[in-house]
């Protein structure tokens, strides 16, 4: 299949992209790597009249430390993030998860900003940045604003971004000294997660647990985190992983099965974050 007729605009700077968005309003859609949007457009599930290509904006491709955070430009590609030395050292959970997205070709094109802004609950990176308590920076006509990850993911394919805004940066607290675990459960390796669990462990706070595909948006397993804070063992705490979730109910993976997986995978991710070696395939 092929996309419906569209008008292609390429922005070379954030300002230029904002101008294009302002010009075309609701008719326009931002195109980063294109690996979330173009597949929908090819199946005619999306048909923007104008696509604004922001994938080449060089000022949005970087990974650098800024004080206590690692700042990741939104147009940083998964492959580049996964293989970045700074990211691997300072925010290893995010760097690792970037290497778990799709397949190598997808990672060569797809960007962290595109993945987060798409708001797909089955995507892995949103749960990871959520577990990391990252801050997302958006720029709009009125300037930049910071959005905590916890407030960014609003629902199914919905985020806190306004139609006239661009996600420009992801600020992830440095966590070189913290354990982490990521469990991605799929049938085939490159599939979207049936369920995923991202854990950022240890000090200075209690472990943070982000869940993939356990609701209309990535969510934190707050019941698990509370149980851990109250002194539960990882295995005990993991039993709470499905509390408050509303996972999709599909033939190959029912909601009940996903709830079960969430507990098993959370236990494993917690164990991994604590330095253990979980059983499983």
């Amino acid at each position: 299949m092929i996309p419906a007729t569209l008008s292609y605009r390429r922005a070379s700077s954030v300002d230029e992209a904002l101008g294009m968005l302002a010009e075309h309003g609701e008719d326009a859609k931002l195109l980063a790597g294109g690996h979330s949007l173009l597949p929908l457009m090819k199946l005619r599930l999306a048909a923007p009249e104008v696509v604004v290509d922001i994938g080449r904006i060089e000022e949005l491709r970087y990974v650098r430390t800024e004080g206590d955070v690692v700042a990741i430009g939104a147009m940083t590609r998964h492959h580049d993030l996964h293989t970045d030395g700074v990211a691997g050292r300072e925010v290893p959970l995010v760097a690792h998860v970037a290497g778990e997205v799709g397949d190598p070709q997808v990672r060569h094109r797809g960007t962290i900003g595109g993945s987060l802004a798409h708001g797909d609950p089955a995507a892995d990176l949103p749960a990871a940045v959520l577990a990391c308590d990252a801050t997302l920076v958006a720029r709009g006509p009125d300037g930049a604003r910071e959005i905590p990850a916890a407030e960014f993911f609003a629902g199914l394919f919905t985020t806190a971004l306004g139609p006239d805004e661009i996600l420009t940066e992801i600020r992830v607290p440095r966590a070189a000294d913290r354990g982490w675990g990521f469990e991605k459960f799929t049938r085939r390796r490159f599939d979207w997660s049936i369920v995923g669990v991202a854990v950022l462990g240890g000090s200075p706070t209690q472990p943070a647990v982000g869940l993939v595909n356990m609701g209309e948006a990535p969510i934190r397993a707050t019941a698990v985190e509370r149980a851990l804070a109250a002194g539960a063992t990882p295995a005990e705490a993991a039993e709470h992983a499905a509390e408050g979730t509303s996972p999709p109910d599909e033939p190959h993976a029912s909601a009940g099965y996903r709830r079960h997986l969430a507990t098993v995978l959370t236990a494993r991710a917690l164990e991994r974050a604590a330095g253990g070696s979980p059983a499983g395939l």
Binding site: F185, L261, V264, L265, R268, A279, G280, L281
Partner: peptide, 11 residues
Amino acid sequence: VEVDTGTGKVV
């Protein structure tokens, strides 16, 4: 095959 009895995954 190996079966992960925790998840049902078969390898």
